[in-house]
Amino acid sequence: MWRYAIPVGLLAVLGVFLARGLTLNPGYVPSPLIGKPAPEFNLPALKDPDARVGSEVFEGQLSLLNVWATWCVGCRQEHGFLVELAGSSGIPIYGLNWKDDRGTALQWLERLGDPYVASAVDADGDVAIDWGVYGAPETFLIDRDGTVLYKHIAPLTAEIWQERFVPIVTEKCGSFPCLQDGIQ
């Protein structure tokens, strides 16, 4: 009777998927935003609540957008590397301060160093939703015309930077560190 063969058939199907799964990397989560224009925003700046930071800052040069918060342990972990990167890569880093407390955030930057050209305050998390943020920290690489080139979830480290970001940056800039007009 064929019905007794159903279980072994199910196992075979499962086996095919599991074998296929072995060749994939589950940690790699691409963003649907890649290759698309960066979502627009216009938010108050962290340092000066009266000033605004908007998505037009990305125009004209390669830039990074880093989603961070003081309550996020991973952000604390990557912060040192971001400070180092800000001084050496030639790429401006913008921050998206996500669902955070302004006072604590300013204190944090004062104590640990400020790698950001400017940080936008996304107190309600609306902009983070537009950007498809899974959780802090996340880092986006954005092209001169405002197209999202790459997205990394989890703390940024020297190895990840070297492996994933540098090839794209080198291709776009023709050199690394990136020598961009108007940026030291």
Binding site: M1, Y4, A5, P7, V8, L11, A12, G15, L18, A19, L22
Partner: peptide, 23 residues
């Protein structure tokens, strides 16, 4: 891959036997 093969051998073998003998 090794565990998958083990799963195939042990469970697959048992289920094949089941298909043949359960009746």
């Amino acid at each position: 891959l090794f565990i998958l093969m083990l799963l195939g051998l042990i469970s697959g073998g048992a289920l094949l036997l089941y298909a043949a003998r359960a009746k």
